[in-house]
């Protein structure tokens, strides 16, 4: 934790900046920057705003925990970072370049996303780990080390991926993404389907990767305890709007906004740990 906290201070991280006036200028130390992002989606016959005028900066090597009630737009925000969806308004910058200007496979390799309930590809654990490199016609160098990096024994390689437990699948999904050596990792409630000890375990492995590789993390979680434990900064999303951005300790100790206090008290739903 102290190690990470130091990282952040070194990069002199503001959590949010209003950049309406400064058109061409962005923080070069920013891993991800959202600028006035808006997104609407079709629900039935209506077009409903899901994200509204949202701005924020994630510095290099920083852990941002993203919390908010169910349906507040957290998963949607993650999908903007690797261009699985496009914003209707505003821009998203990764390493200073707008996502739509990246080569898309390159962007998605650089910005890894682990889904809440990951789909396994048919075949063995080995097949799943090799999947990413194979898409590019490469082979995976050291599958055993990859397994170790998420705390799994190497004799799992030959197992059928479809038959693993939820926790094991989640780790394989994480490992599968790590094989791409992402510089940014988007985590969508990766531990919420796991029992507490498995969740804690996966959490530790993620932090270990973060510390070893300096990976930037944008980590969506339902567990406020987890958000507090792992975060350097915490963002609160309510109704598609950024309700609060603060260093994690401040966020939980001395929330500035009324909404945050109510969210922490469990009054908005979806925040219960």
């Amino acid at each position: 934790m102290s190690q990470r906290a130091r990282n952040v201070t070194e990069s002199g991280a503001p959590g949010i900046r209003h950049t309406s006036s400064s058109s061409g200028d962005f923080a070069t130390d920013a891993s991800i920057e959202f600028r006035h992002v808006g997104k609407s989606m079709k629900q039935g016959n209506q077009i409903v705003p899901v994200l509204r005028d949202l701005s924020g900066v994630i510095p290099h090597g920083c852990v941002v925990t993203l919390v908010g009630p169910s349906g507040s737009g957290k998963s949607t925000l993650l999908s903007l970072c690797n261009l699985l969806i496009t914003p209707d308004e505003g821009e998203v910058y990764v390493h200073g370049r707008e996502v739509r200007e990246w080569s898309i496979p390159r962007l998605r390799q650089t910005v890894g996303l682990v889904f809440q309930s990951p789909a396994m590809f048919p075949g063995t654990v080995m097949d799943n780990l090799q999947y990413g490199p194979q898409l590019r016609g490469e082979t995976l160098g050291n599958p055993k080390r990859v397994l170790q990096s998420v705390g799994l024994a190497e004799d799992m390689l030959a197992r059928d991926a479809g038959e693993l437990s939820g926790g094991q699948k989640q780790r394989i999904a994480l490992a599968r993404t790590l094989v791409n050596n992402p510089e940014v990792l988007l985590l969508d409630e990766v531990t919420s389907a796991l029992d507490p000890s498995a969740a804690r375990d996966v959490e530790e492995w993620i932090l270990k990767v973060h510390e070893e590789r300096g990976t930037t993390l944008l980590w969506v979680t339902h567990s406020l305890e987890q958000a507090r434990r792992v975060g350097d900064w915490t963002w609160l999303l309510v109704d598609g709007q950024m309700a609060e951005v603060a260093p994690t300790e401040e966020f939980f100790e001395t929330p500035k906004s009324d909404v945050t206090a109510r969210f922490l008290a469990g009054e908005l739903g979806g925040g219960a740990s």
């Binding site: 699985l84 998605r108 889904f115 990951p118 789909a119 590809f121 990413g132 898409l135």
Partner: peptide
């Protein structure tokens, strides 16, 4: 019914065709 796998492949840097 295989939306999850398609999205997972895209998210790993695969092409739509793949």
């Amino acid at each position: 019914s295989h939306r999850g796998e398609i999205l997972a492949t895209l998210a790993l840097g695969g092409t739509p065709k793949q």
